[in-house]
Amino acid sequence: MALRKKIDKVLGNILIVIMGVMVINVLWQVFTRFIIGTPSSFTDELARYLMIWLGILGAAYVSGRNMHVAIDVLPLRSSNKTQKKLKLIVYILIIAFAFFAMIIGGLRLVYITYTLDQYSPALQMPLAVVYFAIPLSGALIIYYKISDILNIK
């Protein structure tokens, strides 16, 4: 559990920084356009890419805290034993999705954009960096869900 707490903490701090930078970045956009008169050419793009990171990494964070919105119609009506089994199935399916779509699919996306030299239009930042959030988040989700499986009581 100590490791899990540590990961929570680091992940939380990253999200705080992303959110803070996002606000400052958009304020800077208004400031450069309206006060200075020479609009910044990168703030829009930076904001959108930070947003992808916030959303995708945040998905891992809320997944670790089991904050996702679920519709528990069936599980509530079934016996304790079936509930445990259903929980196990749900966790295994999430792990499968995180592995195949987010890690395999995500890494292939990172690989494609990296080997094909894809850069963002304004910041000229490698798009692989933007998409790397996906496999990273996938790995964290798998960690959290395995830890959840070990803790099913």
Binding site: R33, G37, T38, P39, S41, D44, E45, P121, A122, Q124
Partner: peptide, 17 residues
């Protein structure tokens, strides 16, 4: 696009993406 920004700025406008 960097090219479009440079083009408009070179003509004297203030390029805003």
């Amino acid at each position: 696009s960097v090219t479009a920004v440079n083009m408009v700025n070179s003509l004297g406008g203030s390029a805003t993406p």
